[in-house]
Amino acid sequence: MKLNRRSILSLAAALMVGVAAPAIAQDWPNGPVTLVVPWSAGGGTDATARMIGTLLEKKLGVPVPVVNRTGGSGVIGHTAIADAAPDGQTIGVATLEIGSMHTLGLTDLTYKAYTPIGLYNSDPAALFVRADAGYEDMPALLAALEKAPDREFKGSGSAQGGVNHLALAGMLLAAGLPVERVAWVPSEGAAPGLQDLAAGGVQIATASLPEAAALMSAGLIKPLAVFSEARLETAPDLPTFSQATGHDFALGSWRGVVAPAGIPEDVAAKLVAAVGEVVKDPEYLSFMKDRGYATQWTPAAEFETFMENSDKALAQSLNAVGLAKQ
């Protein structure tokens, strides 16, 4: 045991000297910076966060472990970020759900619990069916939905009241159908929901296009429409929901880096600078492009304004679909 430990020690020390050295020079970062992701491993938020974590690790010279704190429709992870010690050693990725969770009555937590670092991505949701489902296009699916009794169709792709749930409910309302027409099966993120679609557990799934890329290229599922204002550069053949049906509806998720409220201003500034550099890194940009994620950078105060607006818009649509807590 003793000998084993010592040999490991020297071996690991030899390997890690290069990584550990810069960490001692300044007081932040002091040790690993944990990046909390409120959604499951393999989903879009996880994938982009891991990429940012990896590059941040290089930039800061300390490890940036990504921790998936899933469950509770995103409440657990978002709460974990807000409750972390405000020292900059724990940051996280906040998603659109931070604006809907409190309207749903799941938590009291709002965007005000965070120090905004920067918004790095927003992606419209798209609607998927199995490739062998027999619906050629969006109007065909809507026609089938019109005839079907309530709850015969099942949909999945996010937690109860998650962005993909709202996308489906909003689409049904826009098309003049009752929300109960499709029963929502909560999942822990887009990846398990899409897998359930491929397996035949549900008939409809909503998710962003990059999240579905692997299953699409395997020929198992296909998108029918995307809920955006204009066609996407990455998928020029896919019509928007308005183009396909004439009904107007658009909704998408967004992702941004946040820290707990009350972190020292200089640490916040360093974080904004560091993450700001990461999102301009060519490696990051080509990764996001390869996987079809849109990129943007809306730092600090502007991000706060963005979250405020998103919060209001979500409250409106949740009230419209009857999911808001009375």
Partner: peptide
Amino acid sequence: MVFGIPGDSITAIVIGVLYV
């Protein structure tokens, strides 16, 4: 490897490394 769906928490990390 085939679908980018992690089988456990270790493969979730491996998928991240594969992308990088």
